[in-house]
Design a binder for these strands. Structure first.
Lengths: 241, 241
DNA sequence: ACAAAGGGATTGTCGGACGTTCGTGTAAAT
DNA sequence: ATTTACACGAACGTCCGACAATCCCTTTGT
């Protein structure tokens, strides 16, 4: 129940009040934005599993914000497809079905492949390389969670090759949606391990200036990844491995 | 000022009240959704030109809804990039710069080309054909506005080839953004005329089952269209042709 | 002329209120 | 015993009003 311990974090969540208004401030996100961020986190790491209902009043009390504010946060997350709203019934953590898996991968194919085909600047390619290395090091350390985020960084970096603000935000939403499938709790150690060689090969092709080859490898990767994901999902989203 | 005549439409905008609750209802959209739809329309046809500030209280009075509701509508439109929010300053109709043009076209290249490459079912290709014919008929009738919407239908139909719900919503948002450049007021008759042959050729390739050729032609089209758009935008978004 | 101080307008967030909708459990009827 | 009807309660949807925080503009002081 107590998603946040009621008082300590509740006060931290609230905006700057009169007494602490004097300190210098550098664009503190609005309260609804911070509530949304908090919920995003809890959804991502499985504290709020799919199909969980989020009640406005309960949340507003736990977080120490008004119902109105919670409502705004909900609207934000609904627009990101992390929550779904059933009119007059409430909002629920999105639970994705087989169809959604395919849909998400369709978007990824469109966006990632297109971005990779474009080539990208040396700096942006360097960032792809950095993500690859981050993944390797995480794998070496056996840090599953870091491996997962490194993988997301990798694909985010791929899209960033296009240098498009809009594509970036679309991709980050898609990545957030993918986390609905794979909470860290439901993913075994070898899950991301498999894709490390793919990442390496794609990155190599990019560094060699062969964007077309990279795109081809990425397409291939996405096909296998979708298949894999669908398989894992088929035996129940709960069954780890 | 009076974007809506205050009373008549205001009541129409409000939700079903007690007295009229008896008639059968089939999923009436929520009040914020209807406000957002209204604003979307007014933005699309230029009644609310870019950089216009939208004030919460003024709108809530004109539309006969509460400030809270207006606020929710704003949030929706901000998430669609039709409005931009300046914290503590207000929301403004988005005004796109040269960089945004390129950005939008980058998204279109990714999404549309990818969808076309996939081929698509006969029914969805038929819908592309229908949009092409709609454009021709509108051009023959000299109906500029219908020509514009037909063009949007065409590109929407292209994306629909992929059969992806998410791609569709992304595309419809992008199309909405494009309307920020081209209000019907600021577009001369020949504006869309030019692209009719392109649409025809792309559609022909699809019908012939040659998705790759269609994708190639589309890529070419998008390049020329972006150039054209950038040119028009360069001589001031106001200058019609 | 320019910096500081003041005021007005608008947003951000809160709190509460009330009708509506939907699920559920209870009671009545067959 | 199963089904239907009804009443209750929990949430949501929308409205209203309030107040501090913030920003812009104007006025004031030097």
């Amino acid at each position: 129940m107590a998603r946040l311990n009621a008082n300590a974090e509740a006060d931290a969540m609230r905006g700057p009040t009169a007494r602490e208004a004097s300190r210098l401030r550098v664009a503190v996100p609005s309260v609804p934005a911070r509530v949304a961020a908090e919920l995003r986190l809890q959804i991502a790491d499985g504290a709020l599993p799919p199909a969980t209902q989020l009640k406005e009043e309960a949340l507003s009390e736990e977080l120490g914000v008004s119902r109105n504010t919670v409502r705004e946060a909900f609207a934000e997350l609904v627009s990101e497809r992390l929550l779904v709203r059933q009119p007059n019934r409430g909002v629920f953590v999105a639970s994705l079905g087989a169809k959604d898996i395919h849909d998400v991968y369709t978007v990824r194919r469109a966006i990632e492949v297109s971005a990779v085909r474009g080539g990208g600047s040396p700096e942006s390619i360097a960032r792809v390389r950095a993500a690859v290395e981050e993944g390797k090091s995480a794998a070496a350390a056996g840090d599953t969670e870091r491996l997962g985020t490194a993988n997301q960084h990798f694909h985010g970096a791929l899209v960033a090759l296009a240098g498009s603000e809009r594509l970036n935000t679309i991709m980050s939403q898609v990545l957030a949606e993918m986390r609905l499938f794979f909470h860290k709790a439901s993913v075994d150690g070898g899950f991301y391990q498999v894709w490390l060689p793919d990442n390496e090969q794609i990155c190599k092709a990019l560094e060699a200036g062969d964007a077309e080859l990279a795109a081809e490898r990425l397409t291939d990767y996405l096909a296998r990844s979708e298949e894999h994901t669908a398989k894992v999902h088929a035996l129940g989203p709960e069954a780890a491995e």
